[in-house]
Simulated scan of single mutants.
Amino acid sequence: MKINWKGVMPAVTTKFTAEDTLDLDMFTVNIKAQVDAGVHGIILGGTLGEASTLTNEEKRILIRETVKIVNGKIPVIINVAEQSTVAAKQAAKHAKEDGASGLMMLPPMRYKADSRETVTYFKSVANSTDLPIMIYNNPVDYGIEVTLDMFEELLNECSNIQAVKESTRDISNITRIRNRFGNRLAILSGVDTLALESMLMGADGWVAGLVCAFPAETVAIYALAKSGRTQEAIEIYRWFLPILELDINTKLVQNIKLAEVATGIGTENVREPRLPLIGTEREHVLAIIEKGIKTRPNLPDYKQYLD
């Protein structure tokens, strides 16, 4: 499936049972809620997906299950976050075999590669597959920035590198990318608390986190913003912001899973070493979520603006 890199693409959580196995029943409930809300793709195995705790076989199961659930309606994308080029190539190969539509790729993990090494890594993996690729550029959390010059080299040599998940936290980088590359590189905001601002500055979409619990509100913001109904989008976004800030936190997985419980499309089971929130930390997060639920806005018919 060709990927149109735009719209809302949830970085979905991985659902676990109390026995620490994949909870495919609740996973299906959540994915169907995302599709029903009008999301434009599903991204598996990111930070929110607790990828570092998943086995390779579990990742493959999640791809195959998601492909079945969405049934060709939207693309299924798997995150590739590996320590070696060999492992990344293998992950890309498995993704293709299991029916994924594309890849989201981080730079090499653990080792802080320099610019030459990072570009070589991306080229090597991209040239090993025909799947379309979105580069995840998050120097804040992962320590390696993919600069515009690096993107220039990658775009000139790898036609399947097509998009960036822009998570530098520098909103002006949207304009720099657009000025440099025009429409050669699609831009999706990767920071929930900068998503609307990014789209108003020209980003094509939003790789979202709290969409896992609030799919309709997230897609509504995108649809309204892109259809010129900016004030309506801002009003929903203002309501959403305190909840969105739960994503900018080291406990984002636990936070968002609590929100999924509140909206009935998830459980709070996490995989160790993560543990469920307790005490005042839990109370604080629940208070934010509960206030959001109580003041949840009535949404306009936003789907009429989706294309």
Results as ranks from 00 to 15, higher is better:
residue 229 R to E: 14
residue 130 D to T: 13
residue 86 V to M: 13
residue 159 S to N: 10
residue 15 K to Y: 10
residue 191 V to E: 08
residue 124 S to C: 08
residue 12 V to K: 02
residue 200 L to C: 10
residue 213 A to I: 07
residue 127 N to E: 14
residue 302 Y to V: 04
residue 169 R to Q: 11
residue 236 I to P: 09
residue 304 Q to H: 07
residue 129 T to W: 04
residue 1 M to D: 03
residue 263 T to Q: 06
residue 279 G to M: 06
residue 50 E to W: 07
residue 22 L to H: 03
residue 96 K to Y: 07
residue 95 A to T: 11
residue 295 T to V: 00
residue 171 I to T: 09
residue 263 T to R: 13
residue 292 G to A: 09
residue 43 I to G: 00
residue 170 D to A: 13
residue 228 G to A: 11
residue 176 R to Q: 11
residue 4 N to A: 13
residue 76 V to R: 03
residue 251 K to F: 08
residue 272 E to P: 15
residue 169 R to W: 09
residue 294 K to P: 00
residue 130 D to V: 11
residue 274 R to F: 10
residue 34 Q to M: 15
residue 101 S to V: 01
residue 200 L to P: 09
residue 38 G to Q: 06
residue 285 V to G: 04
residue 206 W to Y: 08
residue 29 V to N: 03
residue 247 D to I: 15
residue 150 M to G: 06
residue 16 F to P: 04
residue 61 I to D: 02
residue 138 N to V: 13
residue 167 S to D: 01
residue 142 Y to V: 13
residue 268 E to T: 09
residue 206 W to Q: 03
residue 225 A to K: 05
residue 260 E to Q: 15
residue 12 V to S: 11
residue 82 E to A: 11
residue 236 I to H: 09
residue 247 D to W: 12
residue 296 R to Y: 11
residue 248 I to F: 14
residue 306 L to K: 02
residue 94 H to T: 02
residue 219 V to P: 05
residue 215 P to Q: 03
residue 292 G to V: 05
residue 92 A to L: 05
residue 31 I to T: 10
residue 106 L to R: 01
residue 69 I to T: 10
residue 303 K to S: 08
residue 145 E to D: 14
residue 146 V to L: 12
residue 23 D to K: 02
residue 89 K to A: 02
residue 109 M to F: 15
residue 41 G to Y: 13
residue 26 M to T: 15
residue 45 G to P: 06
residue 267 T to E: 02
residue 5 W to R: 05
residue 47 T to E: 04
residue 125 V to A: 00
residue 134 M to T: 09
residue 53 T to E: 09
residue 168 T to S: 13
residue 56 N to C: 00
residue 132 P to D: 11
residue 90 Q to W: 12
residue 112 K to H: 14
residue 252 L to E: 02
residue 171 I to W: 06
residue 185 L to P: 01
residue 280 T to C: 00
residue 155 L to W: 02
residue 226 K to T: 12
residue 90 Q to A: 13
residue 67 V to G: 04
residue 254 Q to M: 10
residue 108 P to K: 07
residue 156 N to L: 14
residue 195 A to N: 09
residue 40 H to I: 06
residue 90 Q to S: 12
residue 276 P to T: 01
residue 61 I to H: 01
residue 51 A to Y: 15
